[in-house]
Design a protein around this nucleic acid. Structure first.
Length: 831
RNA sequence: GCGGGAGUGGCGGAAUUGGCAGACGCGCUGGACUUAGGAUCCAGUGGGGCAACUCGUAGGGGUUCAACUCCCCUCUUCCGCACCA
């Protein structure tokens, strides 16, 4: 094929996209004996059109997928749509278009956009989570979890976003605000469906240590979110009432310093102990308020089981019902919150831990009981470990040892037990919205909650509903949906109207890709061959905003799927790359800031290859990328230069291959060396850290060298065409359309570039004949000389000392020491 | 407050193990070609100095023949968590 004189991406890019599509170039199966590689980018929500964040995410993934393909892997690289969610419903309310129509139209449009980027997806595996063929299995997993006790319904205080008119999971509340709309979230008591992710808390935590291919930061965030802590539960009997208050503490070494008890406002005993219910209601209203500690004396006292002293019982707004036992022992001397509370309510402070001498808190008075706040010896709580004082038989022990001893004592006396607590709570998945997976249960007057029979799945989301925007989910008034019969007794029953959190949909989509939307089929206890072949995902790429949310849920689901016997994989994602944001004018691109760059515009003006190249070149993938219009032009200029180089030499005869030993001019040798060095550099930059920016820089260097190379005779052309072919092959993952076109122009019918092998370098050809030797005097650079490569230390030393300029700078001085770094530098120490 | 990053020319960013700081690109300067240049090509480009030199990787100290890199302190900044007992 003959190349056009000018680089014309608008013409050639669609042509190659069609070629790949017509030839199913990127469709994959499990057959063959190649090693598999599963490359996955987080699938998008079909919001309407793609933005530069998508372009960056998918460009990164595409480089990896195409590179691995050329390296001989059987690559699975799928794409799909996280297509349930509120924007579709909001569009329905606002513009009267059905969520389904809105969603599918968006998918259609965004798909054409992705195709215009030349991404190497196997579209035959495309999934959309709003498709009944997909959410049917969402429902199936739910029923299985219900059977195993992993899904359950309970009434509890939940996070309610009044703007979204739905509850939110804990992971979806960011600084007391809704993750989606920033509305302040309030607590509301509701019946909700939960998934028992806490059953897997310990395994999810332990598994963190296996996530060696994840950014440290994300692993730490996961660990903190799970929040495991070791402690003890202790019963404090209530004086004069036949009740005990069970508290949880991680500091049993401070038990002797517990001078009061605090109950969480929703704690069942609070209602029982407090006489003034109005006051209790008042404090309940303050529950969860972070800026103020408010307490209410119950009028009752507990007996501290260690000191046998009477201590007052309070209801305190800062004590969480959801963590531990919903009740705490307060040790104001050694806990800042308790200290603040004690000061506010004039409660006694008892010092029971003394800092080790010379430590920060040394000098605090090992207090007697201090009844009045003004008499406090402490300005703040001493929260560190130390030596026990005023602690009966445990006085004189160190905190760590005392913890163990006291726990043993408590267990022996039957006062309580050692426990492990987690911050992680069960995942609330009920959403009071329409556009989501219906939760497949019915409420029967006789049988109560009954799951839908597997054979009756999927429970289809009805299409003929009205979107008024008031009064919650349209399912609440969809008679044909609501009315059903009980699967058990056939009597009248009502369907669940809550739908699932969309994070449920995305918790197993990577599993669905392994089969494709039309082949989804699972049976409990039957291992799925496709999962055995493809899972886990070898490389996952996406935004860091899912560090806890989606990634934790997916790790949980993968284990549930494993325990259903479908696979034996524990961790879904071996390597995780969290790509940085796309920044313009110092801020994340957003409509409200008016600093967005439209991918369509870029593709039309410069082409997909240029757009991809720039986003890959401007920064390493994990860092934020500062957008630069000029930088884009630079990328285009580079590709044009490559084009011109190829065009200029494309009709030259192809010479014989040169053996390394052939005698060639130093220019030819130089170009061949640079080419081999570039192959090595580009390969290692991709393999080592996915640093495409430096890989591309290396290709630019090679291009510069090629530009200044002037072939005259045959073997010059042979060397040049080797450089050019290598260049085109290495460009293929980054700028696939250009690479295809140039390959077609220079390769003389050797197939398409996407099916070529990645080039290999010859270590012998990489070697330099000569090296520049840096000469330092007392660590400062004083000159450079060129010497033959591989000289022994002694010769390098001689060469350096023999250099005229060096002699000048050390004249008249005593040489104390000479340090030689082989092949790099000589440092002469004089004095 | 706790935890984790980051700080390098005018800008985006390079610098495998401590071994030439500033690769590559953008921008800028000069030149060539041109009716023209916001196209293309060539040359130059950290600061200061005519120069030899000298100063330079947030700031201060230290280790070393040698420090962007290792250690200590300080500052700035971004991100995450934040009553989890």
């Amino acid at each position: 094929m003959k190349l056009d004189e000018r680089y014309n991406p608008r013409e050639l890019e669609p042509r190659w996209q069609k070629y790949w599509e017509d030839h199913n170039t990127f469709n994959t199966g499990t057959e063959g004996d190649k090693e598999k590689f599963y490359c996955l980018e987080m699938f998008p929500y079909p919001s309407g059109r793609i933005h530069m964040g998508h372009v960056r995410n998918y460009a990164i993934g595409d480089v990896i997928a195409r590179y691995k393909r050329m390296k001989g892997f059987n690559v699975l690289h799928p794409m799909g749509w996280d297509s349930f969610g509120m924007p579709a419903e909001n569009a329905a309310i606002k513009h009267g278009v059905h969520p389904s129509k809105w969603t599918y139209e968006n998918i259609e449009y965004m798909k054409t956009q992705l195709k215009r980027l030349g991404l190497s997806y196997d579209w035959s595996r495309e999934i959309a989570t709003c498709n009944p063929s997909y959410y049917r299995w969402n429902q199936w997993f739910f029923i299985k979890m219900l059977e195993k006790g992993l899904a359950y319904r309970k009434s509890s205080y939940v996070n309610w976003c009044s703007s979204c008119e739905t509850v939110l999971a804990n992971e979806q509340v960011i600084n007391t605000q809704c993750w989606r709309c920033d509305n302040v979230v309030v607590q509301k008591e509701l019946f909700q469906w939960f998934l028992k992710i806490t059953d897997y808390a310990d395994e999810l935590l332990k598994g963190c240590d296996d996530l060696t291919g994840w950014p440290e930061k994300v692993v730490v965030m996961q660990k903190n979110w799970i929040g495991k802590s070791h402690g003890v539960e202790v019963d404090f009997p209530v004086d004069g009432v036949a009740e005990k208050i069970r508290i949880f503490t991680t500091r049993p070494d401070t038990l002797f310093g517990a001078t009061f008890i605090c109950l969480s406002p929703p704690h069942p005993l609070a209602k029982q102990l407090v006489a003034d219910q109005a006051a209790l209601e008042k404090i309940t209203a303050q529950y969860g308020k972070v800026d103020e500690k408010i307490g209410l004396f119950t009028g009752h006292y507990c007996i501290n089981p260690m000191t046998r002293k009477k201590i007052p019982v309070y209801v305190a707004n800062f004590v969480l019902m959801e963590y531990g036992t919903g009740a705490i022992m307060s040790v104001p001397a050694h806990d800042q919150r308790d200290f603040d509370f004690a000061k506010e309510y004039g409660l006694p402070v008892m010092v029971v831990i003394q800092p080790a001498e010379n430590s920060a808190g040394a000098g605090i008075v090992p207090g007697q009981e201090c009844g009045q706040p003004q008499g406090l010896p402490l300005q703040e709580a001493y929260v560190e470990a130390g030596l026990l004082v005023n602690s009966g038989e445990f006085t004189g022990m160190q905190s760590e040892a005392a913890k163990e001893e006291i726990i043993t004592y408590i267990e022996k006396k039957g006062l309580g037990k050692k426990v492990v607590n987690y911050k992680l709570r069960d995942w609330g998945i009920s959403r009071q919205r329409y556009w989501g997976t219906p939760i497949p249960v019915v409420y029967c007057e006789k049988c109560g909650i009954v799951p839908v029979r597997e054979a009756d799945l999927p429970v289809i989301l009805p299409e003929d509903v009205k979107f008024t925007g008031t009064g919650g989910s349209p399912l609440l008034v969809a008679e044909s949906f609501l009315k059903t019969s009980c699967p058990t007794c056939n009597g009248p029953a009502r369907r669940e109207t809550d739908t699932m959190d969309t994070f449920v949909d995305s918790s197993w989509y990577f599993i669905a890709y392994c089969l494709g939307l039309n082949n989804l089929k699972f049976e409990q206890g039957v291992a799925v061959p496709e999962l055995k072949y493809w899972m886990p995902v070898d490389q996952y790429i996406g935004g860091v905003e899912h560090a806890v949310l989606h990634l934790l849920y997916s790790r949980f689901y993968t284990r549930v799927v494993r325990d259903l016997g479908l696979t034996d994989v524990n961790e879904p994602f071996i390597n995780l790359l969290t790509q940085g944001m796309v920044i313009k004018d110092g801020a994340k691109m957003s409509k409200s800031k008016g600093n967005v760059v439209d991918p369509n515009y870029l593709i039309e003006k410069y082409g997909a290859d240029t757009s991809r190249l720039f986003t890959l070149f401007a920064a390493p993938p994990e860092k934020d990328l500062e957008w630069s219009d000029k930088g884009v032009e630079g990328a285009y200029r580079f590709l044009s230069r490559i084009w011109n180089l190829a065009f200029k030499y494309s009709d030259r005869p192809d010479g014989k291959a040169l053996a390394g030993s052939d005698e060639v001019s130093s220019e030819v040798r130089g170009l061949l060396r640079k080419t081999h060095q570039t192959i090595r550099k580009v390969t290692s930059d991709i393999e080592r850290e996915l640093h495409f920016n430096t890989a591309i820089a290396a290709l630019m260097e090679l291009a510069n060298e090629m530009s200044s190379f002037e072939p005259k005779e045959d073997r010059d052309y042979t060397a040049f065409s080797f450089a050019l072919e290598s260049m085109v092959l290495m460009l293929a993952p980054f700028t696939p359309h250009l690479a295809e076109e140039l390959w077609a122009g220079i390769s003389r019918g050797r197939g398409c570039v996407s099916e070529q092998a990645w080039p290999v370098w010859d270590e012998e050809m990489v070697r330099e004949d000569e090296v520049e030797l840096v000469i330092q005097v007392n660590g400062k650079m004083r000159g450079k000389i060129t010497v033959a490569a591989g000289l022994p230390e002694e010769s390098l030393k001689e060469a350096a000392l023999g250099d005229a300029k060096t002699a000048e700078s050390i004249a008249g001085k005593q040489i104390r020491k000479v340090i030689v770094v082989q092949g790099r530098l000589v440092n002469i120490v004089v004095g």
